[in-house]
């Protein structure tokens, strides 16, 4: 799985950096289970569309819906580069990223 695009999500706040990630294919249950090795994972399979949320305290929150090809990441503003690197490294373990993430 590859990241095709990362776009800014404008919101009301000046304290977090929210970005939308576009993958090249829909997120699977395997992928969500893999996320669980890297932080606190909440997975709500009983929702009409199953929801997951991975929290890596002080770095980022990654969340999205199983079966879709997008996810949202909220980076901690105080350590954006570190959080991005951390996220990238974590994702590399499961997916191949074909271009670098810049902020």
């Amino acid at each position: 799985m590859k990241i095709l695009q990362i776009t800014d999500v404008p919101d009301c706040f000046n304290t977090s950096l929210t970005k939308e990630i576009l993958f090249d294919q829909p997120v699977t249950k395997d992928y969500i289970q893999y996320l669980g090795q890297h932080g606190q994972l909440d997975y709500y399979a009983e929702f009409p569309r199953p929801f997951y949320k991975l929290q890596k305290s002080g770095y980022y929150i990654l969340q999205g819906v199983e079966g879709t090809d997008t996810a949202r990441v909220i980076l901690d503003r105080t350590r954006v580069q570190e959080a991005l690197q951390n996220l990238t490294e974590m994702l590399i373990g499961f997916i191949v990223i074909d271009h670098s993430i810049s902020c």
Partner: peptide, 13 residues
Amino acid sequence: PGDVAYMLDTCFD
């Protein structure tokens, strides 16, 4: 609040 709105949007439309 942002997470709740996101969940309402993505999971419940």
